[in-house]
């Protein structure tokens, strides 16, 4: 999502957002069913190409975004590799017990987590939330009450961040002494969460009242500011995955 950082527009941006979401969910279900490590690796490469080349982000930012992926991969696979069950022992040291089975299963689960992460971030980087919710209303017939609430709530995020800063500054101005220890964590949580939550609830309530006062209604045959349709990019997107995944699967069976 482009909150405060801009990027170039690529063909991934022009795909119908609902269709993109649907394809990604399908892909995630396929990922859950894959138990072949080679196919999983091919799958990762296929998705990685989209992420690295077509999200329209500068290379530096892409590399930066890659760090959490790597952590997710390591953390997910490591606990299974170190503590998983298996018969063929490779390495044993104290509680750590690496076996052949646990190693490959760890890698498989690691790649699975990596794939989910890349798919999700690719979607987030190439989809404007406003278009997504307009598209969901038009193509999936999502109830406008939910769609507009989501859009309003996403608009409130910058205000929430600003409020966070305000509270921080206010505490500094009034000379709140920095405390340490467990108690201070709870005090701090309370000092921030209560004003921010109550402020947000009040604001949300006011927005809802204002929307209803302006005759916001649930009728389905409403008009839209953005008309979201389908284009040739949608076909390209689907064909990309169908052909490359089939190729990847074929390659995995042949042992590439």
């Amino acid at each position: 999502m482009q909150l405060d950082f801009s990027s170039k527009e690529t063909w991934l941006h022009r795909i119908n957002p609902s269709l993109k979401l649907f394809v990604l969910i399908m892909l995630c279900i396929i990922v859950l069913l894959v138990h072949n490590l080679l196919f999983m690796m091919n799958f990762t490469v296929i998705v990685l190409i989209l992420f690295l080349c077509f999200t329209g982000q500068p290379t530096k930012r892409i590399l930066l975004l890659f760090i959490p992926f790597f952590v997710v991969f390591l953390s997910t696979s490591s606990s299974l590799i170190f503590f998983g069950q298996g018969n063929t022992t490779w390495f044993k040291w104290g509680l750590i017990h690496i076996t052949e089975e646990s190693f490959f299963r760890g890698l498989l689960v690691g790649f699975r987590a990596l794939l989910f992460a890349i798919l999700g971030l690719t979607f987030a980087l190439t989809t404007r939330p406003v278009y997504l919710f307009y598209s969901l209303m038009q193509q999936v017939k999502l109830n406008p009450k939910y769609a507009y609430s989501f859009m309003a709530a996403l608009r409130l995020i910058p205000i929430m961040l600003e409020e966070f800063q305000t509270i921080q500054n206010a505490m500094r101005v009034r000379g709140v002494v920095r405390q340490t220890g467990i108690r201070s964590v709870f005090l701090k949580m309370k000092a921030y969460s209560i004003p921010m939550l109550s402020g947000s609830i009040r604001r949300a309530h006011r927005i809802a009242v204002a929307m209803e006062a302006k005759r916001f209604s649930d009728t389905r045959n409403r008009t839209y500011y953005y008309e979201i349709g389908f284009s040739k990019y949608d076909i390209v997107f689907i064909l990309y995955f169908v052909t490359l995944l089939l190729a990847g699967y074929y390659g995995a069976i042949k042992g590439v």
Partner: peptide, 15 residues
């Protein structure tokens, strides 16, 4: 759920 309920819920949730 009315619009108010949905909006307040979603704002809390996004926070």
């Amino acid at each position: 759920l009315k619009l108010t309920d949905i909006l307040v819920t979603i704002v809390i949730a996004i926070a």
